[in-house]
């Protein structure tokens, strides 16, 4: 199962809230999170790791980031 959250343009703490809600809903699987600030990128990665999820990759495109998170 793979889901995507578009948190671009949302201010703190919304990207983290959305990510954690989705992680709780999914339990495991693959989740992509789109953000557009460095702070949101760091916050989402930190939050996912605190739930035991892994940050598989972070790709940047024109100032936007896509975090690929996986949880087993």
């Amino acid at each position: 199962m793979s889901e995507t959250i578009d948190a671009r343009g949302l201010s703190c703490p919304q990207p983290v809230l959305d990510t954690l809600a989705q992680i709780a809903a999914m339990g495991s699987g693959e989740l992509k999170v789109l953000v557009d600030t460095e702070a949101s990128k760091e916050n989402v990665a930190r939050a996912a790791q605190s739930k035991g999820w892994r940050v598989e990759s972070i790709t940047e495109d024109n100032g936007e980031y896509c975090l690929k998170l996986t949880g087993a």
Binding site: P13, L17, L20, A39, E42, N43, A47, S50
Partner: peptide, 16 residues
Amino acid sequence: RFCTMGAFRDLILFKQ
């Protein structure tokens, strides 16, 4: 990203 509000908010909301 030092933030005094975020410090307490993250503790309450995320236990971070």
